[in-house]
Computed example of a mutant assay.
Amino acid sequence: MLKLFKFTFLKKILVKKDNTSDKDLKTIIKNGAFLVDLRTIGEFAQGHVPGSINIPLNELGRNLNLFKNKKNIVVCCFSGNRSGFAKDILEKKGFKNVINGGAWEEIYRLVNK
C-alpha cells in the first residue's frame, strides 16, 4: 500500500499537465476535442479514454496530417511527460490549440464523473 501511495504521489509531482482547469478540460473534451493518447499500442490496449485515438509518440511526426483543422487537441499519456513533449512538437509545427491533458487515467476519471 505504501508503494502505491509513493507512486501516486510521485506521479502527481512529475506530471506536466497544463494549467487548464479540470472543468474547462472536461468541457473541451465533451465538445469534441481531438483526444490523442501517446502511449504505446500495448499500453493503450490495456486501457484508454473512450473516444481517444492512439498515436504513439514515436509515430507523431508521421501523423501530423491528422491534427490539421482540429479546433482543440488534447494529448495525454501515462504521466504527462510524453504528452508535454508532444505538445512542444505540435506547437513547433504550427498547431496553436494543443492542451497537455497529462495522465490518461486522470482524463478518464474526469470525463466519467
Rank of each mutant, 00 (worst) to 15 (best):
F67H: 05
F44H: 13
N63Q: 00
N54Y: 01
I28M: 14
H48A: 15
L38R: 11
V36N: 14
I41S: 10
A45E: 12
L35C: 01
A45K: 15
L66C: 04
I41L: 11
H48P: 12
K30C: 08
L66D: 04
I41N: 13
S52W: 00
V36E: 10
N54I: 05
I29V: 14
I55Y: 06
N65K: 13
V36W: 12
H48R: 07
N58G: 01
I53R: 02
V49Q: 07
P56C: 04
G32N: 06
L57K: 10
I29C: 14
E59H: 12
I28H: 07
R39V: 00
I41Q: 06
N63L: 00
P56H: 02
A45I: 04
I53M: 12
L57H: 02
P50S: 05
G32W: 05
V49A: 09
P56Q: 06
L38G: 11
P56Y: 08
P56V: 01
R62Q: 13
K30G: 08
Q46S: 10
N54H: 05
G51V: 02
T40I: 11
L66T: 02
D37R: 00
L66Y: 06
D37Y: 04
I29R: 12
Q46T: 09
A33W: 07
E43M: 10
G42Y: 01
N58V: 04
Q46K: 15
V49R: 04
F34P: 13
Q46L: 13
I41R: 12
V36K: 09
N63S: 02
N65M: 03
L38Q: 03
L64T: 09
L66A: 07
E59Y: 14
